[in-house]
Amino acid sequence: MRAVETRPPSSRRRATPAERPPAPRRRPGARARRLRPLVPYTLLAPALLVLAAILGFPLYRLLSLSFQQYGLKELFAGRGTFIGLRNYQDILTDPFFWTVVARTMVFAGVAVGLTMGLGTLVALLLRNLARPMRVLVTAGLVAAWAMPTLTAISIWQWMFDFEFGVVNWLLTRLGVDGFEQHNWFDQPLQGFTVIMIVVVWGALPFVAITLHAGLTQVPAELEEAARVDGAGAWQVFRHITLPVMKPIFLILATLSTIWDFKVFTQIWVLLNQRPSREYFLLGIWSYSESFGVTRYGKGAAIAVIMVILLLLVTSFYVRQMLRAVGP
């Protein structure tokens, strides 16, 4: 631990310990020098220990389950039968799997696009508002973020209810035909629109507030200079704002992708815990295989496939991230 302080300041990023010039102000002892490489590990140890202790075994368990025939009986007895890749084979040869994958990808794609797009617009709007209005909108976003998730979903469900739905009432009042006693989840396209609204509504506050915070770091002089040079609003955004904001966009897009790909609670609650198969996304399917029909092995395999797909989808960003981190 002492090594933290004895380490010379200039070493942090540019030089590796070996080629670092001797420290000017303090003369570390030989022992301290020997311990120096251990410093980062010491710092990391507590967090990694917790993660390994609590998450390590369950992750291993999830993976091993996916290679087993594992039902309720096996669960209660505590041991399954190893069946190799059978679960994966079953899933990958099931045409339903590909439907669900495509559906999940499209859903997540649209949800991320909408969240990021609307988030950016709201963030830009925030920047252009006068102070009182800006505070008001920020407070609104914050309140929406603070709302209990399950309650928020239930309220949206209510808004789109068959008999008591405020949306049906409003549309009927506005003279739109066919929305009196209308079931929004009859047609999956409409149903997913509602689900999308709920998901995007829930994600927007985090994204908008974060992006707005990011915008405050874009040098105003630069934008002003561009404007003086005759650049339009879009060009300023495209060539000045966007490059500065790129890292934030990347992080938010990755997080949104992960969250929207895994979307579960919204669908589960909106469809009264009984979604029909046309509303299955990967997360719902995995849960339903596990807890609905108690095929835990297959449910685990779907979860593993989900993680792999997510890795593929986000690999672009992960690579960028690694590049930033260095070798």
Partner: peptide, 29 residues
């Protein structure tokens, strides 16, 4: 602030861990 072996792996791990659906981990946990 430090360079050390396994840093890249650490970063990847931190992302991957967030990708695992919570519902699938509940029984193992």
């Amino acid at each position: 602030r430090f360079r050390f072996r396994g840093r890249a792996a650490l970063v990847v791990m931190l992302i991957v861990v967030q990708m695992v659906p919570l519902e699938a981990l509940i029984i193992p946990i």
